[in-house]
């Protein structure tokens, strides 16, 4: 499955990183705004806000690579009433518009926090839509609630670590990044045994996915477990000791990113649909 789906792996990772970073932006702003004012809060988070938007634009571009006939891509919005894919793209566009709007408004100094909050909300909705696409398939490895858990987790981890790497010295960043990363990894690692049990007890397709996971994709699986655990521990240490060394936070981002990418690669690789036979 993987070979055909690499643009999707990239799209979801980029999109979730964007949504996560923007979520972190808004959370940090909330903290800062309580201590000074909204304008200061926004000023302190301009860079991550721009990066989040840039990542989302990159995600949107990559998504085209997935399409067999990209020229008709505009039609993708036509079935918002029934298709989670339509909703996903709608949410992406909504995020983009809100983000653009907030950037423009913030530039003009007419700042309030509302537009940013709405943008972050659109990001979260987008992640949920992404997850629902897979959950509405006939692939047991994807229809599990664990898909949503892991998509949300990736959003939190990449958002937290991304924010940390972009603005390590800003007040509020450490606790936000720490909370997000740890919450994400606890969800992702903690939910895994349940997910595996679900596959083991499910249909033939689910068991086939499990066989792939425990067979051909076992090295990647172990990599994810090791990198994920390492990230969690390191994030906790950085948070508690208030480490601000750029070298350390970049390394942390890299380890966390590779771990999440590994999890995503596995996600696509083990997708086996329910089938005749």
């Amino acid at each position: 499955m993987l070979h055909a789906e690499w643009p999707l792996a990239l799209f979801t990772l980029l999109g979730q990183a964007a949504a996560g970073i923007y979520l972190a932006v808004v959370l940090v702003r909330e903290i800062l705004a309580r201590r000074s004012d909204a304008g200061q809060a926004i000023k302190a988070t301009v860079l991550p806000s721009l990066v989040a938007g840039g990542l989302m634009i990159a995600a949107a571009i990559v998504s085209f690579l997935h399409l067999g006939s990209p020229l008709g891509a505009y039609r993708v919005l036509l079935q918002v009433g029934s298709s989670w894919l339509s909703r996903e793209i709608a949410a992406t566009m909504l995020f983009g518009l809100l983000w653009l709007g907030s950037v423009v408004v913030e530039r003009r100094g007419g700042a309030g926090l509302l537009l940013g909050r709405l943008t972050a909300l659109a990001g979260v909705v987008l992640v949920l839509c992404m997850s629902m696409i897979y959950q509405s398939s006939v692939i047991p490895a994807w229809t599990s609630a664990y898909t949503m858990v892991s998509f949300v987790a990736t959003t939190l981890v990449l958002g937290g670590l991304g924010m940390l790497a972009l603005r390590p010295g800003v007040e509020g960043v450490l606790p936000v990044a720490g909370w997000m990363t740890l919450a994400g990894l606890v969800l992702q690692l903690g939910g895994l045994p349940l997910y595996l049990g679900q596959l083991a007890q499910g249909s033939a397709a689910g068991r086939a996915s499990l066989t792939l996971l425990m067979g051909a994709w076992q090295p990647q699986m172990w990599s994810f477990l090791v990198l994920g655990s390492l990230t969690a521990v390191a994030a906790a240490v950085v948070w508690q000791r208030r480490v601000q060394s750029l070298r350390v936070v970049y390394a942390l981002l890299l380890v966390g990113l590779v771990g999440e990418a590994m999890a995503r690669v596995i996600f696509y690789a083990i997708g086996v649909p329910v089938a005749v036979g």
Partner: peptide, 24 residues
């Protein structure tokens, strides 16, 4: 109207929709 997103191929337990690389 088809844009080749392949969502349908994930949606059918019978494997009825089949994606054509050549046609996209």
């Amino acid at each position: 109207k088809c844009i080749g997103c392949r969502y349908c191929t994930w949606s059918c337990p019978y494997g009825a929709p089949q994606y054509s690389e050549q046609r996209g």
